[in-house]
Amino acid sequence: MEPVLKIEHLTKVYPDGTVALSNTSFDVHPGEFVVVIGSSGAGKSTLLRCINLLVEPTEGDVIFKGEKVNQSKSKQVKHIRREIGMVFQNFNLIDRLSVLNNVLHGRLGYTNTIKGSLGIFNKKDIKEAEAILERVGLKQQKYKRADELSGGQMQRVGISRALAQMPRLILADEPIASLDPASSKNIMDHIYNICQEDQLTAIVNLHQVDVALKYATRIIGMQHGQIIFDGHPSQLSDKVIDEIYDTKKPPLVNAQ
């Protein structure tokens, strides 16, 4: 099967000299549920943001559905972004707007400038947004202000916003890092089940290994901006986990 996303020799060096990603390559096939693990600062967030060009890669290519994302014009970039839904650690909802309005923000990429700016969406979009909210169990809350919700509910709105884009690919950047254990499980269940039902591909950043093992169909381990493990969860040995999370030890593999 043709991969939905190809990452080729991706490198990102920030202006202050920090190397966040160095020469990273991997392919993602449709239907995969990829979990990226690694300690903070390993380059997980940068990797995700390079995929939808929220961060401009320094070198290398991101190829989404056969198109080079990083060489597209700004209008094309917006079209590509529409097909990639993103879920954030801090939910990033607009506090003072209603839940429904926040979900409809997922449709802005499909709406013209003036209507989108004024917050006028067509009936079909509103129906769809309501259906998505019903799916995540928030239909009753649709007219509430986003800042009236609990953390778990806010993240469900965040997921709904991503779904409203009708995406091919979901990127989730530490979606449960700001939540309590019960809501975390709930959110991971939602993301996983929705991806299964809608046959979406997902790349999820996590730093809890146990959660990763539970949901992932494939795990990528990162350290210092490089991929040091890429395989099925069953292949992830304790030794590898130690290596991913222990930044002080010199890498044993390269010691020869």
């Binding site: 019903e134 995540v136 169990g137 019960a182 709930n186 269940d189 939602h190």
Partner: peptide, 11 residues
């Protein structure tokens, strides 16, 4: 509350 949330995943 947690129990209720679980049920509400796909009502």
């Amino acid at each position: 509350q947690i129990g209720k949330e679980k049920q509400n995943i796909y009502p």
